[in-house]
């Protein structure tokens, strides 16, 4: 009996507590930057596509909902010819972001992507690509990768020596 009364008292006390329920959608929830929501493809500081079509996100995806085809421009820079995410399958695990060696694919704090037809949840590259560096500003993969792809010449990247003169025998 005492226990019942005590429980009721505790419950009534909650009336004077701060409300947790928010009036969504009129009121928006505050999401943290690392919240794993909608997936985007970002750009590097020069506004070039960051994605190099390495297929690691697709391989890491546990539901196999990422499919792409890499292509190469005239400078040898790789980019995805198409990049498709089937969000009706996506479980927002963030493995793709973890696998991405170029910080191209990122999960952002946005979950408002409901659709009436499932087909509309298939996002193509045009839907995914944003004009921003996302969470990792300043990073340009081609500046640290060895190969030259129109961003820098051989030996001009970070931590690179000038190309070897193969005609020299000097130590």
């Amino acid at each position: 009996m005492i226990s019942n009364l005590r429980t009721m008292a505790l419950t009534f006390l909650h009336i004077f507590r701060k409300r947790e329920t928010i009036q969504y959608p009129e009121e928006k929830i505050k999401l943290h930057p690392r919240w794993r929501g909608r997936i985007v493809l970002t750009r590097d500081p020069d506004m070039g596509e960051r994605c190099v079509g390495c297929y690691l996100c697709a391989a890491a995806c546990p539901v196999d909902c990422i499919s792409l085809q890499s292509a190469e421009d005239e400078n040898g820079r790789r980019y995805p010819e198409f990049f498709r995410i089937n969000f009706s399958r996506c479980i927002f695990c963030g493995y793709c972001e973890e696998a991405c060696p170029t910080y191209a694919i990122q999960l952002i704090p946005d979950f408002e992507m409901a659709e009436y037809t499932r087909q509309n949840l298939v996002y193509e590259k045009e839907d995914l690509l944003i004009d921003s560096e996302g969470k990792y500003p300043g990073y340009n993969y081609y500046k640290v990768a060895g190969l030259s792809a129109g961003i820098k010449g051989k030996g001009e990247g970070d931590n690179e020596e000038a190309p070897v003169d193969i005609h020299s025998l000097l130590p």
Binding site: D64, C65, R84, I85, N86, S88, R89, R118, V122, E124
Partner: peptide, 16 residues
């Protein structure tokens, strides 16, 4: 066993 993209490669034609 690490074949990727099974649920996306034809999703542009039909999501099923």
């Amino acid at each position: 066993h690490r074949y990727s993209g099974r649920t996306a490669m034809l999703a542009n034609l039909n999501v099923s």
